[in-house]
Nucleic acid binder design. Sequence first.
DNA 1: TAATGTGAATCGTTTCACAGCG
DNA 2: CGCTGTGAAACGATTCACATTA
Lengths: 216, 216
Amino acid sequence: MLKNKKPNIPLPSLSRLLTVYRLLEQLEKDGIASVSSSEIGKILGYKPDSIRKDVSFLGEVGNFGGGYEVQKLKRHISTKLELEKKRKTCIVGLGRLGTAILNYDDLLRNGFIVVAGFDSNINKLETINTALELFPAYEIAEIVRRKEIEIGVIAVPARSAQETADRLMEGGIKGIINFSPVAIEVKNSVMIRNIDLLGECMLLSTLLTFEENALR
Amino acid sequence: MLKNKKPNIPLPSLSRLLTVYRLLEQLEKDGIASVSSSEIGKILGYKPDSIRKDVSFLGEVGNFGGGYEVQKLKRHISTKLELEKKRKTCIVGLGRLGTAILNYDDLLRNGFIVVAGFDSNINKLETINTALELFPAYEIAEIVRRKEIEIGVIAVPARSAQETADRLMEGGIKGIINFSPVAIEVKNSVMIRNIDLLGECMLLSTLLTFEENALR
DNA sequence: TAATGTGAATCGTTTCACAGCG
DNA sequence: CGCTGTGAAACGATTCACATTA
């Protein structure tokens, strides 16, 4: 899943902290002022110990005996993880999945500025109703370089995934989110995360099978 | 990510094995007869040791000195993990993401039979061009029960995710794939996997930030 | 000889248990 | 007293190293 370079905070902790952050956004909206590690754990399905350890990687912030102040903890996480940082992003592959991502407002709200969309089917570029700038796939490297795009989302069919990644890297991309169901080889300096729908479905199915078998 | 019951094979191993399985399908198609743990590892980005250990959880199957026979290993994994098993599946939320999943052929090829789609917007049900049976969201529990659907894919907005999960469970669903960006509370007997696009993007961005900071 | 299969060692994460503080 | 913060213990996965076998 992850490639190369590790932060000083364990990856699972980091992932949980980001989830906690989004919960805090919600709680803030709901006007809740304070929350304890056990309440957070209850809602998100983690152990309270784990939450406390995760938070403590970022330094002290809670009130002994009184839980965490929602706003304070939220700002704390945001500052330490630099969540206010904006990242220019592009999406390659404008099929159903690609356009779904394109229209995913939460991304924009969380610092991802989608500045370009690519597709190899030029006709498709004209029919998509969007304010976004669209380009044919052969321009990936050039546009990524010119617009200084940092993150590329790959939503193309399996057979063109590696080729797409190569073009993105040619343009100097820093990170890739890969939605295609195949493994992609990337340079060590490029961070990649795979989102593998089919893999998750198969894993779920296998876990169900194991559970069923355990009962007899 | 995972809830409850664990198989005797470590979860990461299981996940890798499923990836290996799909690689083997590809290799078989390409007419490759044999492959070693190091070759697999190279392609998928894992250590060869890890691949060997994973495979050995399922029992011996390789040729000492000569790697694995592609077909044999593929069948071995399929048999041990019961991958030929079919699972009736439904998709709730027929927005762009939901319809993208609906049209994802790989699912069908891997034993997932999508037998129903649900949406709260009744108008939408008429405009979607599909051979699939579509139903309004309020019928979820009834249809899940009647059609004996085992797996539910949640592709609805965050605010209706929990409600959707509750309806699915009311109908006796066994497993849930949750695409909404919020945590869902489920009964212990229900297996859930979360696919968190926003979370993955934020994680990637944070990792990039850490990397950048490490350089100065 | 080349590559598998596997106990043993290592590494990293989670959980425990409790000291510290408001 | 309640809840945080954190070393220490426990646990689980990965990596190592080597015996094993075609």
